Amino acid sequence: MDTQQSTSPAYFSTKNFCTCLIIAMLTLSGAGLYVMSHYVATSIPYINRIPRNQLGVTFGANEDTFAPNHTATYVTGDHWQDYSILPSNTLPITLNTGWVKQLRHTTMQLTGQQIVLLLSDERYLDVLLNWMVHVVLVSPLTLKNVLIISLDTVTHQILQHKQFHSIYVPRHYFIRPDLPATKFSHLWVIRLIIIRLLNSWNYDVLVFDSDAVLLRNIQPLLTQFAKSDIVSSSGSYPFDVHRKWGVPTLCMGVILIRSSPKIKQFWQTVESVVVATTDDQVRVNKALDKMGIQWQQLNHKKYYRGMTTGLTPLIVTTLPSLVICRHCRESFKDIYYVWHHHAARNGTAKRVNLNRNDIWLLRDDWNKTVKNSLTGTQWIRNITRPHTAM
C-alpha cells in the first residue's frame, strides 16, 4: 500500500486535505448558508493560527494552502472550531484530529486502490451484517477492503471485536445532541467528507447503502466503465434536476467515485454549489448540473454517459434499473446485480422488504454470537441462515 501511495499522482497535498476537510464540513453542513465560490491559494492568517503539530500530518514547505476567504478558523484543544454563522441544526463545526489520524491509519491497512465504504449505527447493524453475508456468498469483494463508518460505540465495538475495519465518528461532532437521531443530515455530511478524503489519498471509493444488497459480483461490470470517473446507480431525485436532464440522476445508494486527476474539479464544485439541504445526493447532482453535464444514451438498456464541459471533461455513467434496482421485482432477481428496493428510512421497513423477497440471509439469533471467538469471514458464515449456499 505504501508503494501504491507513493507512486500514484496525488492531486491534493497533505496540507490541502486538512484545509479541504474544513471547507467540505463548512459547506456540506451549511445547508446553503456558505457559498465557497472563491478560494485563496496563498497562506492565510487564519490557517497560520492553527498549531500544525495538532494535525498529526507532515507539511511540505512548497505546499499550497486552500481555505475559504471569509471564515476564521481556530483550534480549541483537540478540535477545529468555526465561529461563523451556523444553521440551527449543527454545532460549531468540530473535527477530532485523532479521528482523522485513525482514518488514515486504517486505510493504510487495506489492500488495493479501491475502498468499499458503508455507514451504519446500532439501529441498522443487522442490515449491515446481512449485506456482509451477501458479500461472502456472491462476490469476491473481500471484507478486508470494506471500511465501515460507525456512528455509535456499540456498532464500532462489535465490528472491531470481529476484526472488521471500523472508524467511530461521533454524531455529536456534527449535530446538536437535542435533535432526534432520526435526522439523516449528519450521515450525508459525514459520507461526502469521507469520500472526498479517501479520493484525496488516491483511493477509488465504492459506496453502498447497507440495504443495497449484492446479488452478483459487480466488479466486472464496473471494470467495463474504466474510463468513467463516476459510475452510479440511477435515481429520479432531485426531481428538478431529473426533469431538466430528462435522464436518471445519480443515486448515492451505490456509487463509485474514482480518484482520477479530473475529480478535483468535481469536489470543488460540490463545495461551491448552493443547496437548501444537506442531502448528499442533491449536492452531487446539482454539482454535475453546474458543471454543464450533457448526457447520451449508450444503448437500448438505458445506460447513460454524461460529460461535463471544459478542457478535461468529467465522464459519468449511470447504470440502469435492471442492474441496480430501486423498484425491485422478484422475477428479475437473477438479472439484478444489486437489490436496493425503495423502503422507508427505518430499519424495520428495510428488514421487512429484504425478508419478504428472500434477501434476508442473516440468522435471527446473530446477536447471541457476538461474544464468541469467531472473527471476520468465519463469523459472517456462522451468522448466515442455515441451508444457505456458501
Rank of each mutant, 00 (worst) to 15 (best):
M1Y: 07
Q4K: 15
Q5W: 10
P9T: 09
F12L: 09
F12K: 04
S13F: 09
C18M: 14
L21P: 03
L26Y: 07
T27E: 06
G30K: 02
G32Y: 07
Y34A: 06
V35A: 14
S37T: 08
Y39G: 00
Y39F: 02
V40Y: 14
S43Q: 11
N48L: 15
I50A: 08
T58H: 11
A61Q: 12
P68K: 03
P68R: 06
H70M: 11
T71W: 15
A72K: 14
T73L: 14
T73F: 15
Y74N: 13
G77P: 04
I85Q: 13
P87S: 11
S88V: 06
L91M: 13
V100S: 06
V100Y: 11
T106I: 13
M108C: 09
T111M: 03
G112M: 12
G112D: 13
I115C: 04
R123F: 05
V135K: 04
P140D: 09
K144D: 11
I149P: 05
I158P: 10
Q160Y: 10
S166R: 10
I167C: 09
H172Y: 12
P180H: 05
K183G: 07
K183F: 10
S185G: 08
L187N: 04
R191P: 07
I194F: 13
N202Q: 11
Y203H: 11
D204Y: 02
L206Y: 02
V213F: 00
L222G: 07
Q224W: 08
Q224V: 04
F225V: 04
S228L: 00
S234E: 01
S234R: 01
Y237F: 11
F239D: 10
H242A: 04
H242G: 02
V247G: 02
P248V: 00
L250P: 01
G253C: 10
S260I: 04
Q265D: 11
W267Q: 01
E271H: 08
V275T: 13
D280A: 10
V282S: 04
N285D: 08
N285Q: 08
A287Y: 02
L288H: 07
G292T: 15
Q294H: 04
W295M: 02
Q296G: 01
Y303N: 01
R305D: 02
T308G: 05
L319H: 01
V323N: 00
I324K: 00
C325G: 11
R329W: 09
S331E: 09
S331L: 07
H340K: 10
A343G: 06
A344F: 09
R345Q: 14
A349R: 08
K350V: 03
K350N: 01
R351N: 03
V352R: 15
N353Q: 15
L354Y: 06
N355Q: 15
N355I: 05
N357D: 15
I359F: 08
K368L: 15
V370R: 09
L374K: 08
T375Q: 05
T377G: 10
W379Y: 14
R381C: 15
N382K: 10
R385K: 13
H387K: 12
T388S: 14
A389K: 12
